[in-house]
Amino acid sequence: MELKKLKQTWSELRLENQIHRLALPVLAVSLLIAVSIIANKKPVVVVSPPEVFERLEVGYSHASESYKLAMGLTFAGMLGNVHAGIADFYLDTLNEIIHPTTFREVKSKLESEIQRIKNNDLSISFFPRSTAYWPDTNRVVIYGQRETQGRGDRGFREEITYEMEIEVQNYRPQITAFRTYEGRPERDVR
């Protein structure tokens, strides 16, 4: 037996053992950190409805620009296409969509508008013309024409802009700020 070779391999074996003693706890801590990060990360949902040609992403508390534009167009359609028979239903539905801090302010305006629709038996239709997203203010802007018509009335058309801030909370879109005004948007839209 070669004593020199045995001493050399024995010291190498001890060195390797010491390296493993240091590396294993570091690897175990790294694994725990990685598992806790992955376990606490909220998944991102990618939505691809047939009528939308862009990728829509929704996270726990964020969404892509295309998703916010799609939701803004949906909300503008709900707000702009009302008649006496469905006015109360829309008010109940909007209660779920509009953030509670904003809903009180918007609800009083909507209730007076709904009362006017019911009293005069009006039908309101909205025809969107353009959409825009303003990233600096996080606003979605829907511009179009609104036609208001009463029973037996020829009706009238006006340009209108819906401007809203859409946030995502628990994967659900919420309108946190809302403004509607006659005329074109205050900035350019596509």
Results as ranks from 00 to 15, higher is better:
L13I: 12
T101G: 13
K5G: 08
M78R: 00
S48A: 05
M1F: 10
V35T: 13
R179H: 10
T102S: 07
I160F: 05
G59E: 03
P185H: 02
S112H: 07
Q18T: 13
E12P: 02
R151Q: 11
E158L: 13
R179Y: 12
G155C: 14
L69E: 02
K5C: 07
D121A: 10
V168G: 03
H62R: 15
R190P: 03
H62P: 03
T180H: 07
T180E: 09
R14W: 13
L73H: 09
M164L: 07
N170W: 14
K68E: 00
G183Y: 02
I175A: 02
G80S: 07
K118T: 05
P173I: 12
Y162A: 00
S64P: 07
K109Y: 14
N170H: 14
D188A: 08
L24T: 10
A132V: 11
L3I: 07
R151N: 14
K118G: 07
T137D: 09
F89N: 14
A23P: 10
I37W: 12
E186G: 01
E147L: 05
S66R: 08
D153G: 08
I160A: 01
P25I: 12
I114G: 11
V46G: 04
P100A: 03
D121V: 06
E16P: 01
V45F: 09
Y60I: 06
F127H: 08
A177W: 00
F126S: 01
S30C: 12
T131I: 04
S108C: 14
I142D: 00
T137K: 08
E182P: 12
R14Y: 11
D121P: 02
N120F: 09
V26F: 15
Y60T: 07
L6G: 12
N40T: 13
M78A: 06
L122I: 05
D136V: 05
V35E: 04
G77K: 01
T161Q: 02
L94E: 10
S125N: 05
R139F: 06
N170I: 08
R21T: 11
P185C: 01
S64H: 05
Q115L: 11
V35F: 10
P25D: 09
L24C: 15
M164Q: 04
Y90T: 02
K5V: 07
L22W: 02
Y60N: 08
D153L: 05
I175D: 00
R172D: 10
I124D: 03
D136K: 07
A23R: 04
A76N: 01
N17P: 01
F178R: 02
R55W: 09
G183I: 06
E12T: 10
H62G: 09
T161F: 02
R157W: 10
E158A: 11
D188R: 08
P128K: 00
V52I: 15
I114F: 11
A177E: 04
R104S: 05
E111Q: 15
P50C: 01
V141K: 00
R187G: 09
Q149A: 12
F103P: 06
E147F: 06
S112V: 08
L13S: 11
K42P: 02
K7Y: 12
E105D: 13
A177R: 03
A63W: 01
Q18V: 06
L56I: 06
T101D: 08
E105C: 08
T93V: 06
R154Q: 11
Y60R: 13
H99K: 08
I37N: 09
V46K: 14
F53I: 12
A63E: 03
